[in-house]
Write a protein that binds this DNA or RNA. Structure first.
Length: 224
DNA sequence: GCGACAG
DNA sequence: ATCTTGTCGC
C-alpha cells in the first residue's frame, strides 16, 4: 500500500486494519548474532500548534554510542485514541526514519508491541510494515494485569491478558517503576527482555528510547 | 453507569 | 504527550 495513505482512515477502519496486520506478526526470534546498530523511536507533542516531533536515534551495539538521529516535524492529523497510537505517530515516524543514513537491525519503540487490545501496538504495527525486528518499551500498561516485579534490575513478572502472556513488567532500575516490554515483530518474549536489558545503562529507560525522547524534546523546543 | 485508558 | 521548580529521600 502507498506510504502516504496507510495511516489515512477512520478509527473504525484503523481497528479493522490492525486485525488484518496482526496475522502477519512473527512472534519468535531475536537479534541476529551480528547486531551492530540499534534504533530508538519517540515522538513529542506541542498542544499549542498541534505538531508532532519525531526522533529516531541510531546507536552502535552493544556499546550504545550515538551514531545519528533522524527527525521530522508535522501537524498531527489523527487524534490520540488509546489503542490507535500508531495512526497518530506513524506518519511522523515514517518521515524521521526516511532521513536516516543507517539501518539499525533492531528498533525499540516508546509504546507497546503486542501488549495491546488487538495485539498490534505501535512497535508491532511498524515492525510488520517494515518487516523489521522491533520491541515495545512502554512506561505504562495499556491492557492486562501483572504483579509488581522484584526490586532488582532485571527482575520481571508476566503481563497477562485474555488468559495469555502479552509482555512483561520489567524492573530496569532500583526504586523506579517497571517498564512494560513486549515483542513487536520477529522477537520472542525472552529475547525481547534480554535485548532490552543489554540496552540499559543505569536509567529506567533503555538508551535507544531514552535518547530518542531527549532528541524529540530538543526538536520541539527548537521549533520556537 | 463506572473505571481503565501506550503517547 | 504537555502544563511545571524545587525538594525530600535513597
Amino acid at each position: 500500500m502507498a506510504g502516504y495513505q496507510r495511516w489515512e482512515m477512520t478509527p473504525q477502519q484503523a481497528r479493522l486494519l490492525q486485525e488484518e496486520l496482526r496475522a502477519g506478526l512473527i512472534l519468535a526470534g531475536g537479534p541476529e548474532e551480528d547486531v551492530g546498530l540499534v534504533g530508538g523511536a519517540d515522538v513529542s507533542f506541542n498542544r499549542h500548534n498541534n505538531k508532532l516531533y519525531a526522533a529516531v536515534v541510531v546507536l552502535s551495539y552493544p556499546r550504545l554510542e550515538f551514531v545519528e538521529v533522524g527527525t521530522a516535524v508535522m501537524t498531527a492529523a489523527f487524534p490520540y485514541i488509546p489503542g490507535l497510537l500508531a495512526f497518530r505517530e506513524g506518519p511522523a515516524f515514517d518521515a524521521a526514519w526516511a532521513r536516516l543514513r543507517h539501518r539499525p537491525q533492531v528498533v525499540l519503540f516508546d509504546g507497546h508491541g503486542i501488549a495491546h487490545p488487538r495485539g498490534l501496538g505501535i512497535a508491532a504495527h511498524i515492525g510488520v510494515l517494515y518487516d523489521m525486528p522491533t520491541i515495545g518499551v512502554a512506561k505504562r500498561k495499556l491492557v492486562g494485569r501483572y504483579d509488581p516485579p522484584g526490586p532488582q534490575p532485571g527482575d520481571f513478572t508476566p503481563l497477562e491478558y485474555g488468559g495469555t502472556q502479552i509482555g512483561v513488567a520489567l524492573r530496569t532500575k532500583k526504586r523506579a517503576k517497571p517498564v512494560f516490554v513486549s515483542p513487536g515483530h520477529r522477537f520472542g518474549f525472552t529475547e525481547a527482555v534480554d535485548f532490552v536489558l543489554t540496552c540499559c545503562r543505569g536509567y529506567k529507560l533503555p538508551e535507544p528510547t531514552r535518547l530518542a525522547h531527549l532528541e524529540a524534546n530538543k526538536l520541539r523546543k527548537q521549533d520556537l
